[in-house]
Computed example of a mutant assay.
Amino acid sequence: MIIGVLTLTFRLHGNRSLKGKRQVAASLKQKLRNTFNVAVSEVARQDDPGTLVLAVVSVAPDSRTVQSRLDKALMHAQAATAEELADSAIELFSADDAGGADGAYGADDGDGPCGPGGDAGDRN
């Protein structure tokens, strides 16, 4: 399994408020989610009204699919807004590199913070 992260940094010229920034972010996030079935989140500089940093994440069985999807998302993001794209980067990760021996993330082995056999939803 391959996980791809596209980081987009936009300069919001003339924007002086966080409300204006949220409007730009919400519109762009929704367009990317609807078009490419990806996860999108603002990941840095949330208190800076002049800069918007978004991470777009995609998961697929092979790197070619992830790379293609994120390349298309990058082109779409550039076309979908009048804001200046100051920087972009794509990183690919293998789940086998980041996870346990079987590549699983957050698997409940029964010895976690919730005790034997518990999970995060079993709080008393």
Score class of each variant (00 low, 15 high):
Val53Asn: 01
Gly117Phe: 09
Gly110Ala: 07
Lys21Gln: 08
Ser41Gly: 14
Gln30Cys: 07
Ser68Glu: 15
Ser88Cys: 02
Gly99Val: 08
Tyr105Thr: 07
Glu83Asn: 05
Val5Met: 03
Gly110Gln: 05
Ala80Asn: 02
Thr7Glu: 15
Val38Tyr: 01
Ala39Asp: 13
Asp47Leu: 10
Met75Pro: 01
Ala79Gln: 06
Ala44Glu: 15
Gly118Met: 12
Ala44Met: 11
Phe36Gln: 04
Lys31Trp: 08
Lys19Ser: 12
Ser68Trp: 07
Ala73Pro: 00
Arg16Glu: 15
Glu84Ser: 08
Gln46Asp: 14
Ile3Glu: 05
Gly50Lys: 04
Val24His: 01
Glu84Pro: 02
Leu85Asn: 01
Asp71Trp: 09
Val24Pro: 03
Ser88His: 08
Asp48Val: 12
Ala95Ile: 07
Leu70Tyr: 03
Ala60His: 05
Ala44His: 13
Leu18Asp: 08
Gly117Lys: 02
Ala101His: 06
Arg64Met: 14
Val57Met: 14
Ile3Gln: 01
Ala89Ser: 08
Phe10Glu: 00
Ala82Thr: 10
Ala89Glu: 12
Arg123Tyr: 15
Gln67His: 07
Ile2Asn: 00
Ser27Ile: 06
Glu42Gln: 14
Ile2Gln: 04
Pro116Glu: 10
Thr65Gln: 05
Asp119Phe: 09
Ile3Phe: 09
Pro61Gly: 13
Arg22Met: 10
Leu52Pro: 00
Val53Lys: 03
Ala26Ser: 14
Ser17Tyr: 04
Phe93Ile: 02
Glu84Cys: 02
Leu54Ile: 07
Ala89Asn: 06
Asp96Ala: 13
